[in-house]
Amino acid sequence: MIFDQPLRRIFADNEGRDSNAKSVIKSISWRLVGTIDTMVISYWVTGQVDMALSIGSIEVVSKMVLYYLHERVWEKAAQN
């Protein structure tokens, strides 16, 4: 409860909408989970660690950007 108010200021605006900071943190944490999943599947399919790491490294950047943009579009849509 001590951290409740400072965290609200970081993660939501005055109207209670998600902040940009929250969207960034959510996109990073989700990408970590998604990238680990992609690397495990890539290794399972190819049997090559270097290929799995290569696929995972490309995927993490592109999907983080796409998720952030997707999150902001949804937040804009919720305002209307």
Rank of each mutant, 00 (worst) to 15 (best):
M1A: 15
M1Q: 13
I2F: 12
F3W: 07
F3G: 12
D4A: 13
Q5G: 04
Q5W: 08
Q5K: 13
P6S: 02
P6D: 02
P6A: 02
L7A: 14
L7V: 02
L7T: 05
R8G: 10
R9W: 10
I10A: 12
I10L: 15
F11V: 01
F11I: 01
D13N: 10
D13K: 03
D13P: 03
N14S: 13
N14G: 14
E15G: 13
G16P: 02
G16E: 02
R17A: 05
D18P: 00
D18G: 09
D18T: 07
D18N: 09
S19V: 00
N20M: 04
N20K: 04
N20I: 10
A21D: 00
S23H: 08
V24N: 01
V24D: 00
V24C: 03
V24P: 03
V24K: 04
I25N: 09
I25L: 15
I25H: 01
I25R: 02
I25E: 05
K26I: 05
I28R: 01
S29N: 10
S29H: 12
W30D: 11
W30H: 14
R31F: 00
R31D: 11
L32F: 14
L32W: 05
L32P: 01
L32A: 03
V33Y: 11
V33G: 14
V33K: 05
G34W: 02
T35S: 11
I36N: 13
D37I: 08
D37Y: 00
T38M: 07
T38N: 03
I41R: 04
S42K: 00
S42G: 05
S42C: 03
S42E: 00
Y43K: 12
Y43S: 09
V45T: 10
V45S: 06
V45M: 10
T46F: 12
T46D: 06
G47W: 03
G47R: 12
G47E: 07
Q48P: 08
V49F: 09
D50T: 08
M51S: 08
M51Q: 09
M51A: 09
M51F: 05
A52T: 01
L53H: 07
L53V: 06
I55V: 13
I55H: 04
I55F: 04
G56P: 06
G56T: 01
G56K: 00
G56H: 01
S57R: 11
S57N: 12
I58T: 15
I58S: 10
I58A: 13
E59R: 07
E59L: 02
E59H: 14
E59C: 02
V60E: 08
V61W: 06
S62M: 14
S62T: 05
S62F: 13
K63T: 11
K63Y: 11
V65F: 13
V65T: 06
V65S: 09
L66G: 13
L66Y: 08
Y67P: 06
Y67H: 14
Y68S: 04
Y68T: 06
Y68G: 07
L69Y: 08
H70M: 10
E71W: 05
R72H: 04
V73M: 08
V73Y: 12
V73F: 10
W74K: 15
E75G: 02
E75T: 07
K76N: 14
A77K: 15
A77D: 11
A77I: 11
A77Q: 13
N80P: 08
N80I: 04
